[in-house]
Design a protein around this nucleic acid. Structure first.
Length: 216
DNA sequence: TTCCAGTACA
DNA sequence: TGTACGGGAA
């Protein structure tokens, strides 16, 4: 029986009621979501915004333009996002994949079955499960849930999962207990990140006034 | 000065 | 299983 099923959905509703809709992903286009998904690896969104702005200002925020850049020039543009040399490689890997699979036509990509598309995405060096799911959900609108360090920390502190839970197990835990709904998956992860940043901080949790305080 | 957040590879 | 990759903000 799933008492914790109602629990996780109730947590979602509590976060939504307290914080309001998030309007994620914060990007102007699906392509920008893809770029942002790589840039935000292990990095706060604040720094990613600086990098995206730099790419926009340089007029290279498109697949062909980014692929035409020498890797070191690309790296310099995305420098504010950190890990910029490795991310320049990862971004190029993903751009090559996108060009090959769909010629940068993301709508066409979204026509493929979710499972095979996800497996295919994971073959790209630099695209792990979180980046893949971010692209699938936020750029392509496909029904997969993004989980991350915030999700693990919040659910662990509420006694729902082990501290060192693996990505796949955490994702399965959540998806088993939430309605299969793209809009809900979209909002759930956005709310988790907001709560993780503002209340459920790693070192100094601010439980007083947290939307999830009643669930402790 | 310390803290934070994914992925690949040894 | 541990380490490299790097920045911006507390």
């Amino acid at each position: 029986m799933h008492t914790s099923g109602a629990h996780l959905l109730a947590m979602h509703q509590a976060m939504l009621g307290a914080l309001g809709p998030s309007g994620w992903w914060p990007a102007d286009s699906a392509f920008e979501v893809v770029v942002g998904a790589v840039l935000t690896q292990n990095t706060s969104w604040k720094n990613v915004e600086k990098a995206l702005t730099a790419l926009n200002t340089a007029g290279v925020l498109s697949g062909p333009a980014l692929l035409a850049l020498p890797e070191e020039v690309l790296a310099r543009h995305i420098q504010p996002a950190g890990h910029f040399r490795v991310k320049a490689k990862r971004l190029r890997n993903l751009l090559v994949w996108l060009e090959d699979r769909c010629g940068f036509d993301l709508d066409q990509l979204a026509l493929q079955p979710l499972d095979t598309l996800r497996q295919d995405l994971l073959t790209v060096k630099g695209v792990g499960p979180e980046t893949a799911d971010s692209i699938l959900l936020y750029a392509l609108g496909l029904p997969t849930l993004v989980v991350d360090a915030y999700t693990a920390r919040i659910l662990h502190r509420h006694g729902l999962v082990p501290e060192d839970v693996r990505y796949g197990e955490l994702q399965e835990y959540c998806m088993d207990r939430l309605p299969q709904d793209v809009a809900l998956y979209n909002e759930f992860h956005a709310l988790v990140v907001r709560v993780g940043n503002s209340c459920c901080k790693k070192r100094t949790p601010q439980c007083a006034g947290c939307p999830l305080e009643a669930f402790l």
